[in-house]
Every structure is written in structure tokens, then in C-alpha cells.
Nucleic acid binder design. Sequence first.
DNA 1: ACGTTTGATGACAGTCACTGACATCGCTCG
DNA 2: CGAGCGATGTCAGTGACTGTCATCAAACGT
Lengths: 191, 191
Amino acid sequence: MPGMGRWQPDARGRLARAALELYVERGFDRTSVAEIAERAGLTERTFFRHYADKREVLFAGSSALQEVLAHAVAEAPGSATPLDAVAVALEGAAAVLEERQEHARQRQSVIDANTELQERELIKLASLSGTLAEALRERGVDEASAGLAAEVGIAVFKFAFRRWVDRTEEKELAQFVREALAGLRAVTADA
Amino acid sequence: MPGMGRWQPDARGRLARAALELYVERGFDRTSVAEIAERAGLTERTFFRHYADKREVLFAGSSALQEVLAHAVAEAPGSATPLDAVAVALEGAAAVLEERQEHARQRQSVIDANTELQERELIKLASLSGTLAEALRERGVDEASAGLAAEVGIAVFKFAFRRWVDRTEEKELAQFVREALAGLRAVTADA
DNA sequence: ACGTTTGATGACAGTCACTGACATCGCTCG
DNA sequence: CGAGCGATGTCAGTGACTGTCATCAAACGT
């Protein structure tokens, strides 16, 4: 198992916590990797052995969302339309974030304050879209519908997540997701 | 007017052309800013006076798309639904890219080969989404519908643009946009 | 028990993106 | 013709990231 060596355990987790703390305290661009490593009791070089770059330390958890989305789409009832399956998956992802809402909101405030981090977030979301599309294809959904449903699903999730983070209304993220999906159907239907 | 000084004219344009050439020839990350500047007959420092960073030189044209989208939404017929207005705007943007399809495809091949460039592209697209949403709000569209229609519109455009670049079928970009919008309505309608 | 191997880390030098400060040069305006 | 100005050059510096080799404690085989 990782982190069971002779050193302090969980070097990776210590780095992630130190990084988030410093990004909150002093801002992303006023924090150097050397400072993160120092707070974690490690060296700069070791930071880069655990995380590809200074931004990635905030996005390591996205692989967990990948799995949630993929499994949810795969296990959606066979009668579900592509968008139904996506909806189920998005609610699953919402539940994951809801469990760690404090961490999620703190992390998001750091991202919202820095353009480079926003870029990284967008490519992670695009990756999630790719995961959704792939899972839909494995259900037998045609290429075009899979790609569109995935892209649009992620667009809906971005929208819902923003409202949840903003805390204008106190609702669960999953509720915002349902409302955004209803809004989508309204926007695409009226003509 | 810019570029009318004592030096070779259009330093900015020379930098942009030199950069695209080198990115095509040797790849983005094997090209240094010093090399770009040298090919343009300038210094590295001057490159950074014209472009904020090494990636931005590929995305300077996106402000033109901003304007096209904003104007198209503003001038769409009053009877148009939010998604109709977005559709008109996307076809306008498609026309702009169609005029420079060779440049657009070459540029896209560079972007497709590099993750950092994909990140920058995504945030530019998100910015376009913001522009669309703002323009819709100025038409009196409510906040939620504006945000959703804009997000979904950009998602549709990404999808259409990809198919156009892939050249699997030889159609105009605007045609792919129309088909993607039809696909969107199908995906959101069937239940 | 002891030598070997292994995996995570440290140490260190190097490249390159990007920035701030100041010098230069010719064009323009008065 | 001299002063100001705008675009560029020069140079030094910071910090992200990488390659390479050394180190050390734990696990492993004999």
C-alpha cells in the first residue's frame, strides 16, 4: 500500500492539504511549490512526483467523479433515454459533492479567483463529458446522440453547480441539477 | 495607427504567423518564444508585449467571434426564442470560420496536439458562452434561460465544429451546426 | 541474521516562460 | 531644431518544471 514506508505516511494527502491551505491563505499565484512542500515536510521535487503540476493538486479527486458517472450510466435502466441516463449520472455526481460540500466550496473559491485554475477545471469537465459519451456508446447509443447528450449534460451540470456554490437559494445540488434539466427541456422545446 | 513606426510593419502579425508556422513544424512545446521572436525579427521581450503568453498568440482572433455572436443575438428578430437567437449567432460564427477554413483547420490541428492549448481553447469558448448569455439578457431573456441557452449553444457548436474539422463528411460548418441543433432537440425531446 | 533489492525521497543543476526596470532610437510636434 | 513619445532592445531575476544521481529504511530471499 502507498504511504506505508519509513517516512511520515500519506505524503500525497499532506501535499494536497498544504496546497489547499496555502491557496486559501495567500492565493494560488502567491504560493510557490517550495512553500507547499515545506508545509508538508517534503521537498519541491517530491511534490512533482505526486502531482504533474501546481494546479493538478486541486483536481486529483476528479477521477472519482469519472467512475461515478461511468457506473451510473452503465447501470441506468435499459428503458432510460440517453438524457435520462445522463440525468441519473449527474445526480450521482451531485451526491458525491454534497458529501464534501465544505471542501467543494472552499476549493471552488480558490478556482474562481484564478484563471489558470479555471482552465484546468474546464478541461477536467470536458474529460467528464468524454466519459459520459463513452458510457452512453456502450449502452448502444449512437455516436451523435451520445456526444450531444454528454456535452449538454455537462453544460447543465456546470450551470447547476454554479447556482449551488452561489448559495442564493439553499437547496441540494441534486435539486439544482433537476431544475436545470427541466430548464433545458423548456429552452429547447418552446418555439 | 499601429505598425506605422520606423520598424518593419505589423510586428504583431509577424509574431502570430511565425508562431503558427513553428507550432506546425515542430510542435507547440518544442518551440520556444525566443525562436518565434527570432523568426519574426524581434526579441522575446517584444513577443510578451504583444501577447500575454505563449498560448495566447493562437487565440487573438476570438474577440472577433465575440462581436459576431453579440451582434447576431442582438439583431435576431424579436419573435425568436432564446435558442433561435443562439442558432442565428452560431451560424454567423460558422460563416466567419468558413472564410478562413484552411487557417482554422491548421490552427486546430496544433491545438489538438497539446493539452495546454486545449485548456486555453476551452476557456475562450466559455467566454463566448458568457457573451451569448449577456446578449440574451439584453433581449430580456431571464437569467436562467439565458445561461442555459448559451451553455447549451456552445456545447452544440463544439460538437458541430469537431465534425467539420474531422472532414468525415464534406459539409459547411453552418450545416453541421443546424444538424447538431436538430440532434439536440431530438435528444431532449424523446422520453 | 545478513546482504540485496526496491521504492520513495533528497540534492542539485539546468531550461524556459514570464516580468520589471531601464536604455535606445527615430518619428512627430511645436 | 530640440523635447517628448511610443515601440523595441537589453539585462537581470523569479519560479515552474525536469533529468540525474545519491540516499536510506523497509521488505525480501537465502
